[in-house]
Design a protein around this nucleic acid. Structure first.
Length: 402
DNA sequence: AGTCCACAGGAAGGGCAGGCGA
DNA sequence: TCGCCTGCCCTTCCTGTGGACT
């Protein structure tokens, strides 16, 4: 861009009437004043948690349902309403919210308890202390706080998958240790089968009450999108059919409203950047691809070198069958390591890394038996053909492969 | 019916970085 | 500073297993 060009670009940008009235309405952190189609759940949740306001113990609670069905939103909605009552009436009640998926924050027992202690005002080192000691500090801060504490464990299934159910067992027993304070647990999970595989003693104490969030149907999804779009965009910014298409995309993802809202926002941004008159249907497709790409590229860039090398092997192996076997991946991975001077990990470890990529949704695997020729896993990348070259390019840059 | 392949995945333990108390 | 502790990443060793082959 020329020298004067940049100034006039910014001036143009300000002058031009954008689509957005309020972009924030379409971000994940936005909390709407009212949550559509969740009245029943809100009421149930409020009923269960209300005793906390009278300093009585409430039941531990387990909330489950697919991604983007409003679980976290509903919990935040109810607790923030409670919080304003708490502040007004000076009720001894605190809310600790933790997303257990947060790497290096709450994905191990140690880190989780240390995070709680930090939220109660006691900073602990990231490693080095015995776990007992971390618990002791946590109990101590709880006792000293003289309050009831509601602990919200979002994506609790991720934590249990990684660390086992001991953490939950310990947390459900905290009340036996405390005199001045009490805790109530609220677990949220995207995995609807999570409870079935949980240790029975933990299961009974965590899920004293259960709340299921059913996926939104197509019509509900459209209403949700419309109500957000009204606040987010100027009138007539959206072509007809756009909301319906976003809803249809999301319905394909098991009624994930978060995804639909994100889709709408990105489509708006793309249209705005292209100086279009309105958001047309074509932008939804483009937004869909952009979102998919961004998610994948972000994950790829944040992986350690060994993980990147494994993924590069998987992406490079794509044969005419669309999937590859563990052994082929491992062999290619070994060659790659040699090429770039990386010490190769064992097959056992690589097998776990493949499992971790599956968790991240980058690949999918299926354990199969080839009879006489052994058992193995079929690994296929969940990256579209159009995204794949860019993903490989990023890995080549990260790994410095010529 | 029995064998055997090529892994999956559990268990145990080593090495490392980092914190604590003496 | 030193010895001892931790969590985490990784290796080593091991058992389990679905189904083609004999």
């Amino acid at each position: 861009m020329e020298k004067g060009g940049l100034t006039s670009f910014f001036e143009d940008f300000i002058e031009r009437e954008g689509f957005f009235l309020d972009r924030n309405v379409l971000t994940t952190s936005f909390s709407p004043e009212s949550i559509l189609f969740r009245d029943k759940e809100i009421e149930q949740l409020a009923n269960i948690l209300a005793p906390l306001l009278k300093n009585e113990r409430s039941s531990n609670l387990f909330i489950y349902g697919n991604t983007g069905t409003g679980k976290t939103l509903t919990v935040r909605h109810v607790t923030s309403n409670m919080e304003s009552v708490v502040v007004q009436r000076q009720i001894p009640l605190k809310f600790l919210y933790v997303n257990c998926k947060m790497k290096r924050v709450a994905d191990t027992e140690y880190r989780l308890i240390a995070t709680f202690a930090a939220l109660l005002g006691r900073q602990l080192p990231s490693t080095g202390l015995p776990t007992d000691e971390v618990y002791r500090v946590f109990y101590e801060s709880l006792e000293n706080s003289h309050t009831h504490v509601l602990i919200v464990l979002d994506e609790v299934d991720q934590l249990i998958k990684k660390t086992g159910s001991d953490v939950l067992y310990n947390l459900t027993r905290v009340n036996e240790e405390l005199k001045n304070s009490k805790i109530t647990l609220l677990g949220i999970s995207n995995d609807t089968t999570f409870l079935d595989n949980l240790d029975p003693r933990v299961k009974s104490s965590l899920s004293e009450e259960n709340l299921f969030f059913a996926p939104y149907n197509a019509l509900q999804m459209q209403s949700i999108l419309r109500s957000r779009a009204e606040k987010a965009f100027r009138e007539s910014a959206i072509d007809s059919g756009v909301v319906e298409k976003c809803a249809a995309f999301a319905a394909r993802e098991h009624g994930d409203a978060r995804k639909a809202i994100e889709l709408l926002r990105v489509a708006g941004e793309l249209a705005e950047r292209n100086k279009s008159k309105s958001i047309s249907l074509a932008y939804i497709d483009e937004a869909q691809e952009k979102l998919e790409n961004e998610k994948i590229f972000e994950v790829i860039k944040n992986q350690p070198k060994q993980f990147q090398c494994v993924l590069y092997a998987i992406l490079s192996l794509k044969s005419n069958t669309d999937f590859s076997y563990t052994s082929d991946i491992y062999n290619l991975y070994n060659k790659l390591c040699f090429k770039i001077g990386l010490r190769p990990l064992t097959q056992r470890r690589v097998s776990d890394i493949i499992g971790e990529f599956e968790q991240l949704g980058i690949i999918s695997t299926k354990t199969i038996s080839k009879g006489r020729y052994g058992r193995t896993r079929e690994v296929s990348a969940r990256i579209s053909n159009s995204t794949r070259p860019m993903a490989k390019k990023i890995l080549e840059e990260e790994l410095e492969i010529q």
